[in-house]
């Protein structure tokens, strides 16, 4: 059928599925063109099969340009992500990718601190691969059962610091304490963060206090994913300091911390 030509443009094959924790899943998707274009911080926009109206935006966790694959790690939060978790290798997904603007990439020998909170941790992995041993990855989770990707981060050569709210794995407490210690030990060239809003806000405040450039990856309920429908609004300041709405899908998901109205 002629109309299949449009489906084909978005259809991608699932190469591998792996359950990481009770709620978190890893999916490797074959998408030669998208993998060739993707940069750290961008996202994919997947339409779960079934009677769903909206796509689900999910951060890219791995970019393998040679294999032509992208990896995503997502948490089952509702029916849409539950449907995605039930896919198997060989199934196809309807995916627009890569979308959005990624993190600013400094030269590989720059000292950067990467902060990930919970399911905000996955987009830090491509950055850790870029910076390797010059990166410090501080990731925080609710408890030991929610911890993901620590082996992946260790393999990049980055220094890893694990925190949990209840101390059941790594250090007890929030990521902000080790963040300040690392800043004081040696001032980084940049801080990149993705996670819950209070965590991003605290990381942005510390960056501002120490005068370090900081970029944050934001989340918002999203529509088209390409900047047309204007639903995923994010309150920001323009160059004159006036408030305006930018959009997470097109202007983000990565924003400079100082332009976000917290």
């Amino acid at each position: 059928m002629k109309q299949d030509r449009y489906k084909e443009r978005l259809a991608c094959r699932v190469r591998a599925m792996e359950q990481l924790t009770a709620a978190a899943w890893s999916m490797v998707i074959e998408c030669l063109e998208a993998a060739a274009k993707a940069v750290p911080g961008q996202f994919v926009h997947i339409l779960p099969a079934g009677s769903f109206t909206l796509r689900r935006p999910i951060s890219i966790c791995g970019i393998d340009k040679e294999a032509g694959t992208l990896r995503i790690v997502f948490e089952v939060r509702g029916k849409g992500t539950d449907a995605l978790s039930q896919l198997h290798a060989g199934d196809t997904v309807d995916m627009l990718a890569p979308l959005g603007h990624g993190f600013t990439l400094l030269p590989e020998n720059a000292r950067v601190i990467l902060i990930g909170g919970g399911i905000g941790t996955p987009p830090m992995l491509p950055l850790a691969r870029h910076y390797g041993a010059d990166a410090v990855v501080i990731s925080g989770f609710r408890n030991a059962d929610a911890v993901i990707l620590q082996q992946d981060f260790a393999e990049t050569g980055a220094k890893t610091i694990l925190c949990t709210d209840d101390g059941s794995a790594g250090r007890a407490g929030l990521v902000t304490l080790p963040l300040e210690e690392e800043i004081c030990a040696e001032k980084p060239a940049m801080i990149c963060a993705c996670g819950p809003l209070p965590m991003l806000k605290a990381a942005a405040a510390l960056a501002q206090k120490h005068q370090i450039p900081c970029e944050v990856s934001l989340e918002e309920r999203m529509g088209c994913g390409i900047g047309a429908c204007l639903v995923c609004a994010c309150r920001t300041l323009d160059e004159h300091g006036d408030e305006q709405y930018l959009h997470v899908c097109r202007n983000g998901p990565v924003f400079k911390a100082e332009e976000v109205v917290w």
Partner: peptide
């Protein structure tokens, strides 16, 4: 016009709600 505060979209059974507010 700057439009409404987010969230501006919600999925519903076989549809969606939006409140962009003419941005």
């Amino acid at each position: 016009r700057t439009g409404n505060l987010p969230p501006r979209v919600a999925e519903t059974p076989m549809g969606m709600l939006n409140s962009v507010g003419l941005q």
